[in-house]
Design a protein around this nucleic acid. Structure first.
Lengths: 145, 145
DNA sequence: ACGCAATCGCTATCAGGTCGCATTAGACAC
DNA sequence: GTGTCTAATGCGACCTGATAGCGATTGCGT
């Protein structure tokens, strides 16, 4: 927490209530949260904080490398602390998100690099699919919606 | 063309000017086009066709399985004839889109299936990365905008 | 030619996010 | 503690991409 605030200060930023609360929220619930969710959490403690301020602060924190955001598909992006490299698997059926370690994609990354000269980035956009629960895990048909 | 219109008719649909032009546009420029681009093309021939009509028709055609749309990342989705299975590689630098054959992802698909029970779908959402031109592939700088 | 309802054009609306601007309030100097 | 400067805020307007409602139109089977 203090570390993050220090980083904020070092970059010439000020520590405001809104900013402190955004960081707090991110630290308290380490899950993937949308800007709206974060905003709601922050507003629970300081009702005057506008969602645009939350966006601006999330942006700022991202520039500092503290957090990153991922687009899970349709709908809003989610923010998380940038602790480690991982991709995201999103179930298009139920929306469930699985984190997949970076190396799960290294094979694909190599292949795409070799065949297309394409440097894969799995961090900013999620990979879509259907989770075991939704695709009928074992036997039955696919109840695609 | 006629085949598509027939399919449209068989499903109980009517052949209207707007509809015909949308199909025409899709056939004439087989590239990936956004709804807006398609709309512009259609409006060049029939200025009264509203973009919401284009959306509705694209939707209809998609339900018939004639076309599909892909989200390339930020920004609008693109539509293309659903001729074959392929994924899309999008360069976050220049926006360049490469089509990658379905089997390029089969390794990843197998791995995700085995490790997470996750059924990969590479068709509806593109895979992000940086193309050879943009990541400095050869010599000069990367003129990322 | 008639009539029904699928489709249209239009406007309003939505979601997610960004921007401009006047005001507020950190943080440093004294 | 007070002053000063300006980063950051709150707010509303706006933007893009897409969708929904609704009355008018029009394709097309009869």
């Amino acid at each position: 927490m203090e570390e993050i605030l220090d980083r904020l200060r070092l970059s010439g930023g000020r520590i405001t209530t809104a900013r402190r609360l955004v960081v707090e929220t991110l630290l308290e619930s380490p899950h993937h949260q949308t800007a709206e969710e974060i905003s709601a959490q922050v507003q629970a403690k300081a009702p005057d904080v506008h969602i645009s301020t939350v966006y601006r602060n999330l942006d700022e924190l991202e520039k500092l490398g503290v957090i990153s955001h991922v687009h899970l598909g349709h709908g809003p992006a989610v923010y998380h602390l940038s602790d480690e490299d991982h991709g995201h698997l999103v179930c298009s059926g139920c929306g469930w998100v699985t984190e997949a370690p970076h190396q799960a994609f290294s094979g694909l990354a190599r292949a795409l690099k070799a065949r297309f000269g394409f440097e894969l980035d799995t961090q900013h956009f999620a990979v879509q699919g259907v989770c075991s629960r939704c695709c009928g895990g074992g036997a039955s048909g696919s109840a695609a919606v």
